[in-house]
Design a protein around this nucleic acid. Structure first.
Length: 670
DNA sequence: GAGCACTGC
């Protein structure tokens, strides 16, 4: 067991560093120091110590001469905070122009913006500001550097399609390839054709920059005019900036393991036994895995005795109650070693201080999408090399660290994909396409994406939008429904439902339901008190289905204290009918019929004859009404319908005659 | 009688 590992042979080219700008940094309260105490001169010295400082001139030179500059940053180089300041100092914000810098996450926007405001020595929201959904901290006419999420910038294009206020736009964390980042990159490329003077900076942690460079290498129509004009070269420049993380020694297993959970647990114990102090961060796939590993670890510790009681075992995933999450960031008491068992949340979204050892299972849960069945599912899949490097980098934050990979070096070198598949190619595109349509992009199939989604996925999304009446036969947004739906920042099916509610006089109720549908789940906040929970749910359960149940909950909440007196049931039934029709207007494409003679509650979808079942969390579970529509589908061992409502089949023809006119409503028994 | 990787407008 002690010779479990062999050192890896990675060269400094894969030197691992951490990102301080993309993630959220939590400092133990005992060691946290407010940097504002250092004063201006010290802040300036800190700025000059950042690796990116050496490249200040080079960056400004390239941005001046090239329409697009790709900065490959071993993260931690300070590029997110420094480059916008360099641009401002060089005059890119003169004349009322804006320097924009996008981030994929809201917290990152806020943190980078406040750091930069501090460094520039101004009040946040004035010269340096930020915009995220629900919060605009900018001052038009005053703000020069503006941080925003990429989603907000896409929304801004609806008002100002060429983003004329911006002289430079920096797209940060482009390697993460989120849907909104990819959409933004495609749109910015389009804008550049119309605004050749607009400068783009694409900041990426991986060398995938090469394909990015090909993507942005546009041929300008008027290139015959020669270089005498003031336009920058359309050929992208690429610049590499090193990071400032510590080296991380990589270890692999010698033989493939059969049980990665057990191997992970063994590795944690081995680190604790052999290695000097320093916290351990373990990457697993999900809550199930994490809970199983916690259990295994606790069992082993019971057997192994006193020394191992110094291990402080902490799970970390997004669904964790707030109080439990705080434990992760509390300082480790003396003589204790923290072991954080985490999902991918610790890979990009938040940063743990004090981690010196990383254990990488090599797997994560990833969304995947089948455009034929129109089903999105979460599957456990091997991670990419880029992910593996990112995970390892988490060990090199405070001092040189070690990363233990629960896979062989050969597997890493020969079988692991170098980059993950962009989210765009693993998703339902309904929301994405409606946004492009709203921006006036008619030829969706011809849109120039950094990574094209499959034609099947695009056609499926167009079909769904057409059937909802959001697009017409020419695939243009309908008036007014299509344009209205595009403006509402929700799932288009929910938006359509809200708009239809007006016709049925139940807007209040539908808005309540829509807000329930737009959160993860209304039930999850209760854990560990299963019996009371089930009883509470029964009190609110409505025969019509989950949607009306939400309404009951809200009403009960609203009239708190009188929850036992639900004596206006008839009135509720009358309302509920109209409410259900409005719901159908949004989700009739998700109608399902109970299979006759089915003993186990099997339904088939009307559209694709897919086998589906009512999710056990639904109030209609085991009730099995003949006809239902569902809000969403989750796939595990079976396809489960979540948020289900009972309907009359005639409502379908009423809501969507164009969709259902040729279909039979009495499928022959078989 | 099952489950929730992570974001965002």
């Amino acid at each position: 067991m002690s010779r479990f590992w062999k050192p890896g042979s990675e060269k400094p080219s894969t030197l691992l560093v951490d990102d301080e700008e993309g993630g959220v940094v939590f400092l133990p309260s005992s060691s946290s120091v407010s940097s504002s105490g250092f004063g201006y001169a010290s802040l300036e010295r800190q700025r000059q110590r950042l690796p990116v400082y050496k490249y200040r001139k080079a960056i400004l030179y390239l941005v001046e001469r090239h329409a697009t500059t790709i900065v490959v940053g071993e993260t931690g180089s300070g590029k997110s905070t420094q480059i916008p300041q360099y641009l401002k100092e060089a005059g890119w914000a003169d004349g009322g122009r804006l320097i924009g810098c996008t981030q994929p996450r809201r917290l990152a926007v806020q943190m980078v913006a406040s750091r930069v405001a501090e460094e520039v020595g101004v009040k946040l929201g004035e010269e340096v500001g930020y915009t995220i959904r629900f919060e605009d901290q900018t001052n038009p006419g005053m703000t020069m550097i503006k941080f925003l999420t990429d989603g907000v910038l896409i929304r801004e294009m609806m008002e100002d399609p060429l983003l004329t206020k911006y002289s430079v736009i920096m797209v940060d964390e482009a390697h993460e390839r989120s849907i909104s980042t990819d959409m933004l990159l495609g749109l910015l490329k389009k804008i550049q054709r119309r605004r050749p003077e607009l400068r783009l900076i694409i900041s990426s942690a991986t060398i995938e920059a090469r394909s990015m460079s090909t993507f942005f290498n546009i041929r300008r129509k008027n290139s015959l005019l020669g270089s005498s004009d003031n336009l920058p070269s359309p050929e992208p420049a690429v610049l590499s900036v090193e990071g400032k993380g510590y080296t991380v020694e990589i270890h692999y297993v010698e033989e493939p393991v059969s049980d990665y959970l057990q191997a992970t647990v063994n590795t944690v114990l081995l680190i604790h036994e052999k290695e000097p102090p320093g916290d351990i961060l373990v990457f697993l796939t999900g809550q199930d895995d994490i809970e199983a590993a916690v259990k295994l670890l606790n069992e082993e510790i019971q057997h192994l005795g006193r020394h191992y009681l110094d291990l402080l075992i902490l799970p970390l995933y997004s669904g964790l109650p707030r109080g439990d999450q705080d434990l992760i960031f509390a300082p480790t008491s003396k003589g204790k070693r923290k072991v954080v068992l985490s999902t991918n949340i610790a890979e990009t979204s938040l940063t743990l201080e004090g981690v010196v050892y990383v254990v990488d299972s090599g797997f994560s849960k990833q969304k995947c999408y089948n455009p034929i069945s129109d089903i999105e599912s979460l599957v456990v899949a091997p991670i990419s090399k880029a992910s593996a490097r990112q995970r390892a980098g988490r060990a090199g934050r405070v001092r040189p660290g070690k990363c233990f990979r629960i896979y062989t070096e050969e597997y890493y070198l020969t079988e692991m994909q170098s980059e993950g598949i962009p989210e765009m190619q693993r998703s339902n595109l309904v929301s994405c396409i409606i946004q492009l349509k709203a921006l006036g992009i008619d030829n969706i199939l011809g849109f120039d994406w950094p990574a094209s989604p499959s034609p099947e996925a695009m056609i499926r999304a167009l079909e769904v939008l057409f059937s909802l009446g959001i697009l017409d036969e020419d695939a243009k947004l309908t008036v007014p429904i299509g344009f209205q739906v595009a403006e509402i920042p929700l799932d288009p099916m929910i938006s359509k439902m809200i708009l239809s509610a007006n016709d049925f006089g139940c807007s209040d109720e539908i808005l309540t339901i829509a807000s329930f549908l737009s959160v993860q789940s209304v039930w999850v906040s209760v854990r560990g008190v299963k019996k009371e929970f089930d009883e509470a749910k029964l009190r609110f359960a409505a025969a019509e289905g989950d949607h009306v149940t939400f309404l009951n909950i809200y009403k009960g909440f609203h009239q708190s204290g009188k929850s036992s007196q639900w004596c206006y049931k008839n009135f509720l039934n009358y309302q509920a009918l109209a409410v259900r029709k409005a719901i159908i207007a949004g989700s009739f494409t998700n109608a399902c019929h109970l299979e006759e003679y089915s003993q186990n509650g099997m339904y088939k979808t009307i559209r694709t004859l897919q086998e589906v079942y009512i999710h056990p969390s639904s109030v209609l579970f085991r009730v099995n009404p003949k006809w239902v529509v569902y809000q969403s589908l989750v796939s595990t061992d079976k396809h489960y319908m979540r948020n289900v409502i009972a309907i009359e089949p005639s409502w379908l023809t009423e809501a969507a005659p164009h969709f259902y006119q040729f279909r039979a409503f009495n499928p022959a028994p078989h």
